[in-house]
């Protein structure tokens, strides 16, 4: 599955503020791409616009997933089409059990794709197996969605959802934020276990350290609403050593 973003211009719906000013990007099937960039460069906006959050207006350009127009779909349709966004700040939903949530989501997607819904027995088996590799215990599965979870637990829960829903295009929005070294390794291992020739990743991060664990094929540098440089993993190391200053100066 490949994601194609072409000359994407996005402004805030409620104010006259342009956030993305012509992003062009292609993530072919099976590849892991990273987007790095200073604060306010538009990285998170890109992830929200791709997944269909309200509050943004696309003024120009396109985004397609295997040729299908992402921007014309509702968020749930994008999910059923294989897109997944791991949130920077996963949302707490009191009163809704994590299991109920996962099962509702999984079966909704299956239904949307015309597949059989999973029986409770099969679902339980699947969720236990996936949870185990992410060191998510039964107690965490029973608790309400993300309520009382530590930062690390919330991010692991995001990866569990990803593992259960088996999307083909995963966007990770600063999944490393708020994680200690061990938690980051656990999350990275979870992501790496999901890498496959059919699945692509777009990893948004501030720091190179996550990319030590999730090795990207391509690194993009974003600044002021545009991709200003694209390169291999070495680009991330360059940023880590020299900051964004040199790169920004380079493009003027």
């Amino acid at each position: 599955m490949s994601l194609n973003i072409n000359n994407l211009h996005v402004k805030l719906e409620d104010e006259d503020k342009q956030i993305l000013k012509g992003v062009t990007l292609e993530v072919p099937a099976g590849e892991v791409h990273a987007i790095m960039g200073p604060n306010g460069s538009g990285k998170s906006t890109l992830s929200y616009v791709l997944s269909g959050r309200d509050g943004y207006e696309v003024t120009e350009g396109s985004a397609t997933l295997d040729g299908a127009d992402l921007l014309a779909m509702e968020p749930e349709e994008r999910a059923a089409a294989g897109l997944f966004l791991a949130f920077q700040y996963p949302v707490e939903i009191p009163g809704v059990g994590n299991m109920t949530f996962l099962r509702t989501a999984l079966n909704a997607q299956r239904k949307a794709r015309g597949e059989e819904e999973l029986s409770s027995g099969d679902f339980l088996k699947l969720v236990r197996e996936k949870a185990k590799t992410l060191k998510i215990d039964a107690e965490m599965l029973k608790r309400p969605v993300n309520v009382g979870f530590s930062g690390g637990e919330k991010k692991r829960n995001e990866i569990l959802q990803m593992a259960m829903l088996e999307p083909r295009m995963c966007i990770l929005d600063e999944t490393d934020s708020g994680l200690d070294v061990d938690a980051m390794r656990l999350v990275a291992d979870g992501v790496n276990a999901l890498r496959s020739p059919e699945r692509s990743f777009l990893v948004i991060t501030h720091y190179q350290r996550l990319l030590d664990h999730i090795r990207p094929d391509v690194v993009h540098i974003m600044s002021n609403g545009r991709i200003i440089k694209t390169g291999g993993p070495e680009l991330a190391i360059e940023v880590e050593q020299n900051g964004y200053g040199d790169l920004l100066a380079e493009v003027g």
């Binding site: 997944s51 269909g52 959050r53 509702e74 749930e76 509702t104």
Partner: peptide
């Protein structure tokens, strides 16, 4: 949005 992004219809 969180729920919808996981495929749950509105």
């Amino acid at each position: 949005f969180y729920l919808r992004s996981r495929g749950v219809p509105k």
